[in-house]
Amino acid sequence: MADGAIAADQLKLFIERIERLEEEKKAIADDISDVYKEAKANGYDAKIMRTIVRLRKMESHELQEQDALIETYRAAVGLS
């Protein structure tokens, strides 16, 4: 029975850590949102900024592959 109590205590600690991290994640998401709002207020396009942030996370070869596919699709629909 002692093992069950220990396991329950450990589980509770894990849950509490997750909850704290979720709160931190929410606070960070709010901070990021505030930065986008500030940038928008200064005349920048937040949607394009989000795209640039996403692209900067990509590996070079992934970015090149995506660019090639976009160009192929643009040409196929007459946007080139």
Rank of each mutant, 00 (worst) to 15 (best):
N42H: 12
D34H: 08
I48V: 12
V53M: 03
V53G: 02
M58G: 01
K40T: 11
R56D: 01
V35T: 08
S33H: 13
L55T: 04
Q66D: 03
A29L: 12
A46T: 10
L55R: 05
V35Q: 11
I32C: 03
D45Y: 11
I48C: 04
H61V: 04
A46W: 07
K37R: 09
M58C: 01
M58A: 07
M49G: 02
V35Y: 09
R56P: 00
D31N: 13
I28G: 01
K26M: 13
K57P: 00
Y44R: 09
R56F: 01
S33N: 15
A39H: 05
D30A: 13
Y36K: 07
R50A: 11
E59P: 01
E65Y: 00
I32V: 15
D67Q: 12
Y36S: 00
D31C: 03
M58P: 02
D67F: 15
E59T: 02
Q64I: 06
I32R: 14
D30N: 13
A29T: 10
D45I: 04
E62N: 03
K37H: 14
K47V: 12
D45V: 09
K40R: 12
Q66S: 06
E62R: 04
D45M: 09
E38N: 11
E38V: 10
D30C: 06
A46L: 04
R54A: 13
